[in-house]
Design a protein around this nucleic acid. Structure first.
Lengths: 244, 244
DNA sequence: CGGCTTTTTGACCGAAATCAATATAAGTGG
DNA sequence: CCACTTATATTGATTTCGGTCAAAAAGCCG
């Protein structure tokens, strides 16, 4: 890996100097490969590891007494995970690998050093975290007020958008490594109803499914169904301290 | 105000030096009184102000095309609001005063200076933000997987918990300045159904409502209905840089 | 091929929404 | 302080969306 996924990630939002990239690379200590289905951190277990997703898809989820599950968030390359361990000793939710994946561990002492020695990067990290928060609130609104169609539509759009922002051109469809069960756990629906809902979306020509390739045919209509707001990130750099 | 609400707030989690308290006090520039119902920041409007709640209740909400609304989060004394303006120029949601309130404005240049000059405080702020995030994910799980009873129960418990952590002893009940409409917008339900649901909770002896005073009679049973997990915050101080 | 998961479809049920009306509380101006 | 208006709470009747249960079809993989 020539460049840490963290530097690449932050680099999407602002211009980073070579020094800054080096510092960010230095934050990560060792990389780990994890297998599809591996639980990186169990709910209620000890909370400790902080890491960045290098490749693959992960998800954060909570389990209910009766075995039902809610997936809180999907994570892709560049996403920073496990920060809640800074405030909670017991993990509030579990982190699982959805596909085979690679992660880069972050040493928390070095994170402290980053704050001490590279305030601009620390402040940047702080600002970029807001994007995650807003994504969460958007999902919360979708779960609270959207119909099943709306929830699934919102999920697909958010997904396409995040993938599109990060890497692949999503125009001609993208691979969706999610079972309908998992889509249900993301949207708060049952797998059965996800199936029906997606069939309807297909029949109405809003999306097309071919194998596990999903293509959004009518983004505007889908966005209307989803009550989806496109949000463009623009990190305010005026307030950031000068680089060291 | 002898001490800024921010210093008080962070002081709940860790020991702060007198110097640090002073620095935090210096972050805020001027206080504002806002009337019940006042919109401090409209959705899609310009995003700019960062502030701390000094007194009163506020909420963040999103509006849908058809006029329905989802309340994303309630805010009390010490809560830091508007940070999403660091990453978004357009406000992702609106902020409204639920009761008459006072807020302290935060100067964003000084926030930058805080990162440059007081890395420990910056890191602390970063860590404490995780609490807000976990609260959000808990709400998301509740909206995704709880029944109406569960959602209302979870709301009441979260509320009692946050109020209890901050200030008042909640044992003998607490004032709930929320209409059933608003509770519905928090839980993703209709006002009518909130009414029925709360009546049932009362009849079952889990809660008691007297005027707008709400008392939780059986916390354990209510917690079971709500799939509620109590989480205790414990900021890890080991990684924090040394104070300046 | 044979056992597994995942997807799809049908029949039925139930929780919450919707529609509608009344009751109660809370403001507001005279 | 009272009459009047408006917001909020409560209850009932009905509808609808999504869940549950069950089974078959289609993939997937050793």
């Amino acid at each position: 890996m020539a460049e840490s996924c963290l530097a690449e990630h932050l680099g999407h939002y602002v211009e980073l100097s070579a020094t800054e990239r080096n510092v960010l690379d230095g934050l990560t200590a060792g990389s780990r490969a994890v297998r599809r289905g591996a639980i990186l951190r169990p709910e209620h277990g000890a909370n400790g590891e902080i890491f960045v997703v290098e490749s693959g898809w992960l998800y954060t989820s909570a389990l209910l007494e009766d075995g039902r599950r809610q997936i809180v968030r999907l994570h892709f390359r560049g996403d920073l995970l496990g920060l809640d361990s800074l405030a909670f000793q017991e993990a509030p939710d579990s982190i699982t690998a959805l596909t085979d994946a690679h992660i880069c561990m972050i040493d928390r002492a070095r994170l402290g050093a980053l704050f001490a020695e590279h305030p601009r990067l620390a402040a940047l990290l702080f600002a970029v975290r807001q994007v995650d928060r807003v994504n969460l609130t958007d999902r919360l609104v979708s779960l609270g007020r959207n119909s099943a169609r709306g929830r699934v539509a919102a999920l697909l759009l958010q997904l396409a958008n995040r993938l599109g922002a990060a890497q692949l051109p999503v125009e001609d469809g993208f691979a969706l490594p999610l079972t309908q069960e998992e889509i249900g756990d993301l949207t708060g629906l049952t797998a059965v109803h996800v199936n029906r809902t997606m069939r309807v979306l297909s029949e109405q020509g809003l999306i097309r499914r071919t194998g596990n390739i999903l293509r959004i045919l009518q983004p505007e209509r889908l966005a209307r169904v989803a009550n989806y707001n496109h949000r463009s990130v623009r990190i305010d750099q005026a307030w950031l301290p000068t680089p060291r």
